[in-house]
């Protein structure tokens, strides 16, 4: 029981002991994991790959119109946690998720819920740009087509243009929409993937190290874009760059070996970390 008490104490408030009952060896999270106006709420999330536990009792809210960044050393489980939020882990053999993850108060792991429409609500941008080997236009039109979002060609054209404009790519590609998306530069490809995600009007966008394969200029453009997107979407971003976390996010969560160690306002985390592990990581003593 001592471990349970240790878990509950610092994150008291909205979390009940029952939420955490399944989690055995988790460490306490420092800071307030909740927000006033949450889009997604995660409580006591455990993830196993076969017999190995990758995430241990993580609770975290993602608020509306905010960017939450997740940082931590490699293998700390931040990407795994991110992939739970739109059930992308379902495609991995032997992956098991317990605990509760809610999107607008609907449990996304509910047995009756179809993960397919969920992924339209919670979009994802990957580490390596992965445009389909189709034209730029078809890359954007793919999502709206499979979800039947538009009624005719003109509406689809409009949607493609708005999506590309929101991703800041329209001016660069408007004259070559029929050319393959794989022919763009790395940064353009990543913005194409963001535009593709925006086109199905998600509520949340998950980004898994979206800039790690890009040069500094392309990175700066994407970071600016993330800041603009915050107006319409909730964004969770995994990053290895602490500067990036500091630049784009309002709140930061620090993961360590499957535990969520500390959550807080980004400024606080970087200027005044409360947990020893967070401080060590931020000051570059390890990781």
């Amino acid at each position: 029981m001592s471990t349970m008490a240790e878990v509950i104490e610092p994150t008291a408030g909205t979390i009940s002991a029952a939420d955490l009952a399944s989690s055995q060896h988790s460490r306490a999270t420092v800071g307030d994991v909740t927000v006033a106006d949450p889009r997604m709420t995660c409580r006591g999330v455990d993830v196993w790959y076969g017999a190995k536990q990758a995430i241990k009792g993580v609770s975290l809210d993602i608020g509306k119109h905010e960017v939450v960044s997740m940082i931590g050393p490699s293998g700390c489980g931040k990407s795994t946690f991110l992939r739970c939020l739109n059930r992308m882990n379902d495609t991995i053999d032997g992956c098991r998720v317990t605990g509760s993850i809610k999107l607008d108060d609907v449990d996304i792991y509910d047995a009756g819920l179809d993960p397919v429409p969920l992924r339209a609500q919670v979009g994802m941008v990957f580490q390596k740009p992965n445009p389909f080997p189709k034209s730029i236009y078809e890359n954007i039109a793919y999502g709206p087509r499979i979800h039947g979002l538009t009624n005719n060609k003109a509406e689809l054209d409009d949607l493609v243009e708005t999506s590309l404009r929101k991703a800041g790519l329209w001016e660069e590609v408007k004259d070559r929409l029929d050319q393959p998306g794989t022919g763009l530069s790395g940064g353009q490809q990543q913005r194409l993937c963001i535009a593709r995600t925006i086109a199905v009007s998600p509520e949340v966008i998950l980004m898994d190290e979206p800039c790690s394969a890009l040069d500094p200029i392309a990175t700066a453009i994407i970071e600016e874009l993330i800041d603009e997107l915050r107006e319409h979407y909730s964004i969770a971003i995994v990053t290895h760059s602490m500067q990036q976390a500091a630049r784009v996010s309002q709140r930061t969560a620090y993961f360590h070996l499957g535990d969520l160690i500390e959550v807080g306002e980004t400024n606080d985390i970087f200027t005044n970390p409360k947990h020893k592990l967070t401080e060590d990581y931020i000051t570059g003593r390890f990781g």
């Binding site: 397919v116 994802m124 990957f126 992965n130 389909f132």
Partner: peptide, 12 residues
Amino acid sequence: SLRDGSYALGAT
């Protein structure tokens, strides 16, 4: 990555 990209857009 192409499969992931498609699933992440809500494709079956």
